[in-house]
């Protein structure tokens, strides 16, 4: 599999009255063709800003991409003219947003909104586009698509709106689909429907997917590889199996230990990450996670750790490898066999 998207040393900043917010501060990562990459982190860690930078949807000003490269199929997207970028956006890469209500236009019918991209990028006329839009709506599981295509967004439920968003995203069969917390605003059972849908569509079309989330649970069964971000920095990247089985950055371990699991065997006390995420205007000179880290050493306060390889496809930005220093048996081990009693239906 070739590399589809390569992000090199990306720096995205926002100029505010209080100073420059380094929302993304020198991150490097890639997605291969057909791969599903998960990006996790808390709000404000730069995960959405990274992907908005890739789509070149950062509002400028106050935003600016201060440095780095975004290579998509051999071209640096940052050097493209806005007209050329418009041909990439929607056609070769598409994005699904968290809140399907605010990202659909309330005064246009669903037909208009799905057809727009088809007419713009695929050169279809309105009749062809309508036909294709109905097909797409059926594909994402919207019942009675022929009638519902003339409805407005408010006539759809949250889950159905998200399906419309997915239909729009897939309309031009992009090579890369970026999903920015697409299930966060949805209920548990509806979120499960959407995840299942995306899994099936991926099998069908083989596009690469970047799934942004703060929920380590959702991406566990979905992704091939994962990136963990903290305060604008990439702190750990590994295959999904390694990230959960051998979490090596203190922040990744902290995240895994601080959420209760549905399959925890007994009532265990959660181990929270103390303190608060840092202010992105005035980051500490050393490791951004140092003030909250229980493994902190002298060097952590003075020098920012660079990404280093600790295993095949496994990199961390930390002076210690926490997994080696203090292996945690309970992480990555099923705490109880929950899968069995749920094998219903």
């Amino acid at each position: 599999m070739g590399v589809l998207l390569q992000v090199n040393n990306l720096q995205t900043q926002f100029v505010t009255g209080d100073g420059v917010v380094k929302a993304v501060d020198g991150v490097t990562w890639h997605v291969s063709e057909g791969e599903c990459l998960g990006i996790v982190g808390e709000s404000g860690c730069g995960k959405s800003v990274s992907l908005l930078s890739v789509m070149r949807l950062i509002p400028m000003p106050p935003g600016q991409i201060a440095g780095g490269e975004i290579i998509f199929e051999g071209r640096n997207l940052l050097e493209l003219h806005e007209d050329e970028m418009r041909r990439v956006r929607g056609k070769q890469m598409a994005m699904i947003f968290q809140d399907p209500m605010t990202s659909l236009n309330p005064v246009l019918t669903i037909n208009r909104q799905i057809s727009e991209a088809l007419m713009l990028h695929m050169g279809m006329n309105s009749e062809q586009a309508r036909k294709r839009a109905i097909e797409l709506m059926k594909m994402v599981g919207i019942p009675s698509a022929e009638q519902r295509i003339d409805n407005y967004p408010h006539q759809f439920s949250g889950g159905m709106r998200q399906r419309v968003m997915i239909a729009m995203g897939l309309s031009c069969q992009p090579k890369l689909l970026i999903a920015d917390e697409p299930t966060t605003a949805l209920d548990v059972t509806i979120a499960a429907q959407i995840i299942e849908l995306v899994k099936n569509l991926r099998k069908q079309f083989g596009m690469a997917i970047i799934w942004i989330t703060h929920d380590l649970g959702i991406v566990a069964g979905l992704t091939d590889r994962m990136i963990v971000m903290y305060a604008g920095h990439l702190v750990e990247t590994a295959t999904t199996k390694d990230l959960y089985g051998r979490p090596s950055h203190p922040y990744t371990q902290g995240l895994l230990k601080s959420v209760p699991r549905l399959d925890e065997a007994r009532k265990e006390r959660l181990v929270p990450i103390d303190g608060l995420p840092p202010d992105l205007i005035a980051l500490p000179p050393g490791c951004p996670f140092e003030p909250r880290c229980t493994f902190s050493k002298d060097i952590c306060r003075h020098e920012r750790p660079k990404l280093r390889t600790i295993g095949p496809d496994h990199q961390i930005a930390c002076w210690v490898d926490v997994y080696v220093e203090q292996p945690r048996a309970e992480i990555g081990q099923p705490r109880a066999e929950i899968g069995q009693q749920e094998g219903v239906a």
Partner: peptide, 22 residues
Amino acid sequence: ALLSAVSIPDPIVEAKRQRIIL
């Protein structure tokens, strides 16, 4: 159905689980 829809932060466990999709 609710319980089966909750994901568990563990790819090995997730791969074995069966979901009831309502």
